[in-house]
Design a protein around this nucleic acid. Structure first.
Lengths: 338, 338
DNA sequence: CTGTTAGCGCATTCAA
DNA sequence: TTGAATGCGCTAACAG
């Protein structure tokens, strides 16, 4: 079916080695043969088979990327950043969406290995012992996004300081005068939004000697608008109400504001809301959202840069890139009314 | 470096053929050898090399996907739909982001060919003669999303009826009583938002015997919020003002609303706004946006389904899938105030 | 300069 | 059942 180097060689009346030489410019070839061969290539529409090439060079030029979902500006930002660097370094990206399933992720990692990826980037939320094992034995350089690699010394990570960022956001609320501060947090299995940001929230409370209140903390499994709505509903059911709520992400914050509007609670008049991520939504919603900005695209760029660096040097290393974040104050926060 | 089938064979004291047989279960192998081999596989951590396999079987199990950008819910929805079907059919996805450049897209298509993709999905906005040529000569099945394939009979397409959808949206405005209706359209090179939706807008005007007014049509090159802002600014500069503006996409609509709010023009009191896409934004913005809903995820699913069907049958075909759309009326539209 | 040959890692003939 | 040998498409080392 497909035209091979042999067909071209036959058509040009030369050996396949010569064809290979002109195509790769690896050795000088007489002008006359070169022309004949180029003509044959043209006529047959021959394209060298990258699979065969990979087999010889032991280089696929492939980078595997796993994300839990793509329909989320954080992850699509990551992917775009990764893709841009990969492309510009001559690598192609294999994208796999895990749907947050640990089993699927592990299967994808296996596939990446059999498919001879030269590098792997994982932006996962869940984590397991098998993950750890896979990364320790992985033959290719790896970068993990959004979660510290722990004691994995041969894996790079690109993260932000979620704990500190959350701490700063809540400290800001405290500085405004708030003492009754709730949080809608992510699930416990999500390191960033479930653990770290919650820890930062607790840090800020502790620093201000504010005892935490269980009823003011809602745990959500997802990061959709509806989760914010439900989370706020739950918190609002407490006898005593908070005057501010810190949300694990912008969508949750938006959902919380929707519930409050429905209930006739004014934001920020009666209750202040802080989000996290600063996605486009944050500027558009009314009132515009005070939130923590970070740059998923830049994170992807950093991750891919660390990866290509390792791939070039042909060796794994354990660098950690901590990207900046920044509290962006908009109109969803104000001093408490009392 | 990497452990090969040879290493396993040596360790188990058998031939590589036998190892291959137990791993693929292609021929019966005595239980004793099977055990020995499995043990050797376990101990060495051997993973079969998919590249070598591909070379033999002439099947890579790879699908190439090109999108102009991913940081846009329309395209990320597409990708997620495609990915889910591909995964479930045992294919892996190679993602390439073209940044809207024709040259880059063509280069990616070449790469896809040399990399032996078994199928290709293109969701592009721009189009060129070279595109056309590539798809006619392409050896693998292809699906084009968002643009009719024209006379390409061997390429599937997944589209919505942009013209009709736009027509219906503008007709709705006319039915509300509007006669002075503007449009912020996409660039001419974007078939969907630049040509078809504009054509639908003209269709509706024509049907109602409303002469089109040049000053009420703004052309934008991008689809960001800022484009809507600028586009609305341009239209607002006309001596006579329109009472409604149809926007080529939701982000543009949001930008338009932002400009209007700045200027103290009330929506929908003084001016009605209609968007297109019904992305999450549309429900969240204030006032919530009347817009045309369609389903990028479903579109991706359809595209990938048509592709896998062709890949299974090992032959190209020219089906066209037209996905449904639907006008969603929210709070950004009302009868004109006069 | 050019052609012949030996693999890359694996599946699959063909013999044994 | 098992092993040796062939070849997928291509590059690179070796002769000429």
């Amino acid at each position: 079916m497909s035209v091979t180097i042999r067909d071209v060689a036959k058509r040009a009346g030369v050996s396949i080695a010569t064809v290979s030489r002109v195509l790769n410019q690896s050795k000088p070839v007489s002008e006359s043969l070169r022309k004949k061969i180029m003509k044959a290539v043209e006529e047959t529409g021959y394209r060298p088979n990258a699979v065969a090439r990979s087999l010889i060079h032991k280089r696929t030029g492939l980078v595997g990327v796993i994300i839990p979902e793509i329909y989320n500006p954080y992850f699509s930002g990551l992917v775009q950043g990764i893709e841009s660097i990969a492309q510009q370094s001559g690598y192609s990206v294999m994208l796999a969406v895990s749907g947050k399933s640990v089993e699927q992720e592990l299967e994808m990692l296996q596939i990446f290995q059999t498919r001879q990826m030269e590098g792997v980037i994982l932006a996962s939320s869940r984590w397991s012992r098998e993950h750890r094992r896979w990364f320790t034995q992985a033959p290719m350089p790896c970068v993990i996004i959004g979660r510290p690699a722990g004691s994995l010394s041969s894996v790079c990570t690109a993260i932000i300081d979620n704990r500190k960022a959350a701490y700063e956001a809540v400290r800001y609320l405290i500085q405004l005068g708030h003492r009754r501060i709730g949080m809608i947090r992510g699930p416990k299995w999500d390191r960033a939004s479930g653990e770290e940001r919650y820890a930062g929230y607790r840090d800020a409370l502790r620093e201000a000697d504010i005892p935490p209140r269980r009823q003011w903390v809602a745990v959500r499994e997802e990061f959709q608008v509806i989760d914010g709505y439900q989370g706020m509903k739950q918190i609002a059911a407490a006898k005593e109400k908070p005057t501010a709520v810190f949300c694990a992400c912008d969508r949750i914050a938006v959902g919380a504001m929707q519930y409050l509007e429905e209930q006739g609670v004014s934001v920020p008049g009666d209750l202040s809301i802080v989000g996290f991520d600063d996605e486009e939504l944050a500027r558009i919603v009314t009132p515009s959202l005070t939130t923590v900005r970070h740059q998923p695209f830049e994170m992807g760029v950093q991750a891919a840069t660390m990866l290509t660096e390792q791939m070039l040097n042909q060796q794994k290393m354990g660098k950690e890139a901590v990207l900046p974040h920044q509290l962006v104050v908009r109109n969803s926060t104000a001093p408490p009314s009392e």
